[in-house]
Design a protein around this nucleic acid. Sequence first.
DNA 1: TATGAATGAGATTTCATTCAT
DNA 2: CATGAATGAAATCTCATTCAT
Lengths: 209, 209, 209, 209
Amino acid sequence: MPKVGMEPIRRQQLIQATMAAIDEVGLADATVMRIARHAGVSAGIISHYFGGKDGLLEATMRQILHDLGEAVAARRRALESTSPRAHLGAIIDGNFDRSQVTGPVAKTWLAFWASSMHKPQLARLQQVNKHRLHSNLCHQFRRLMPRDEAHSAAAGLAAVIDGLWLRGALTPQGLDADEARQLAHTALDQLLAGHETTAESYETHPARA
Amino acid sequence: MPKVGMEPIRRQQLIQATMAAIDEVGLADATVMRIARHAGVSAGIISHYFGGKDGLLEATMRQILHDLGEAVAARRRALESTSPRAHLGAIIDGNFDRSQVTGPVAKTWLAFWASSMHKPQLARLQQVNKHRLHSNLCHQFRRLMPRDEAHSAAAGLAAVIDGLWLRGALTPQGLDADEARQLAHTALDQLLAGHETTAESYETHPARA
Amino acid sequence: MPKVGMEPIRRQQLIQATMAAIDEVGLADATVMRIARHAGVSAGIISHYFGGKDGLLEATMRQILHDLGEAVAARRRALESTSPRAHLGAIIDGNFDRSQVTGPVAKTWLAFWASSMHKPQLARLQQVNKHRLHSNLCHQFRRLMPRDEAHSAAAGLAAVIDGLWLRGALTPQGLDADEARQLAHTALDQLLAGHETTAESYETHPARA
Amino acid sequence: MPKVGMEPIRRQQLIQATMAAIDEVGLADATVMRIARHAGVSAGIISHYFGGKDGLLEATMRQILHDLGEAVAARRRALESTSPRAHLGAIIDGNFDRSQVTGPVAKTWLAFWASSMHKPQLARLQQVNKHRLHSNLCHQFRRLMPRDEAHSAAAGLAAVIDGLWLRGALTPQGLDADEARQLAHTALDQLLAGHETTAESYETHPARA
DNA sequence: TATGAATGAGATTTCATTCAT
DNA sequence: CATGAATGAAATCTCATTCAT
């Protein structure tokens, strides 16, 4: 029973179905037919709406990236304090937000990570995100320490976040978000140790990342 | 010109060829024909020696895991000091050993990581390795701090190592091993801060991980 | 905005669009969607008006045949002389009429010719036209020579006309109508050589083809 | 039962099967599966030997062109006389050679003709052949008449040959080679009328086309 | 031991057609 | 009258694997 105005609905359905299929059998076995079955539609419609499988995969990755960025941004908007530590904490929490940690999203995320090494289209998206995390972190650390130290601290914290993610994705029961968050916060504490008293001394205008 | 005693040579050739192929086009496009071409043999022979493509992939992953373990073990054997910090440093260095960081190995490693989420055979290997790193680290941290803290420290350092690896694999120019090693050592320093003077007070017998 | 009385307009639009599409990408790639796009309507409407793609193709071929017949008939009606040579010349000229020689028509024509070998519906139309040309020519030659000779002359001239057409369709710049017409007239002259003085001696009533 | 050295045999089989399939159902419905069935092999092998369907079609067209060229060349080699008329007659006869006139070849030929209008690869082959016929004819006519006349005569005779071919391909019973040959020879006679006595006066060295 | 010929399953994509709106 | 959503069939191509030589 065809209706008009289905496009946005179908696109969303298919993106969700893609994550479900990748969660279920992995990217390699996520065929268009399986994805279509998950969405309850026929396979041909994927080409209709996304031009082909690659288009769907890219749209799915974009969605995940968008959701992640949104989760982080939301946490930061909700912040009362404007201290660097508060922002950094919000970035961490956003990265371990429920929506990012769910099985389907986590596995899809890792699948794309591996896949992006050989697909320029995905690689570009991946780069944008990688840089976004680093620069967000860097910006806040800059308010507390010299540039080089800030850069290293950001690299270290980014590695912790992604590493926890990676190891969590491999855990059969899925990532324990609370434990991961706690470990990341501990790492943050250590990176900030000895720097907080000098807060705002390196950068004096209100931060915005 | 068939010869006898070719088995070990061919197996090694094919495992190297597998990494080369994955490095070149990714796991998804590493067909048996491409792998065979890299090895300079015909495709049929893969089934002969490995029973099939899956067998070859498993053997390749096993090889990588073995090499990694060996790199770490070698560094630790070469240690003069037996201090926890020295061992932990050796583990870090082993993980960023040249052989692990080379393009082919790095990409193959990440490809398997993603793939292992849906292939029990690979997942088992992956788990073994993941636990090995964690327990190696834990063991050393135990010599300097209470169990819970040691556990967290190990989880944190493991995350840093894998995170640096992951982000490095995504970098177009490949992982900068020296920079990564330095960041990991910095993280280690912070994890050990305040614990070194109490060395050996929590565990008194010589460590061996 | 649906309107009444659109049928003849839409049919004509779609037939023209079919020729345009075939001219652009060939019969094999002239999908209903492409044809519909050329006509500025949706694909579904083709089934509505023509029962399906085959119906549209048949209607298109019929149109071309009709146009060709009309072009020849018009030239003959405009004739002052009733001599066989004048009629034969008019038939030639009609076959190289501008409307027949245009890119779209020429390519569509040849496409149908090839296609008709395996589609009975089209084959029947093609036969009718093939016979029409032959019998038109034959009729005029009969007025100047015995039956067998007339038959051969008609076959020869028909071959020249179709051959020029065929070779012209293949020429990148399209058929040079003037040159083709001239060559055909030369062939006609040769076929008539030695027969004209005896005109009307074989058939005495006014010709009508 | 695989054997070695099958490549040339399979290629030939598949080319013949392609003509058979096109003869049977037309180019549009000559799917790789149908072609493969005609050859008694599986569909996949077509991509193996020809890189894909297009490769097979091109090879088939090449084969037909080669056979045609060979048929003409053979007739001319067998010539005792070196007169222009003898050569021109041999060219005509070669073009209506049995191997060219068989149902499968004729239909395949016409199918490619239509198809070549939109496939550059085929168009190039077609052009080569078109020019070859024209220049072969031109060369001989040149020995008997001035350049412009020779050019026109060649164009006229080429048109007759192709036209007879075209109309023959459309005839349900297939082309009547004898009748066609006779008509072509008649056309040749008319083109030469009045020129033979002046033979060799325009070009004096032995012709070779 | 090793090759390459061959298959058959499976994946993506295209497309004509149908149908509710 | 007309659209666009949707399907399902079919076509091409890829690929792991088997097997005779």
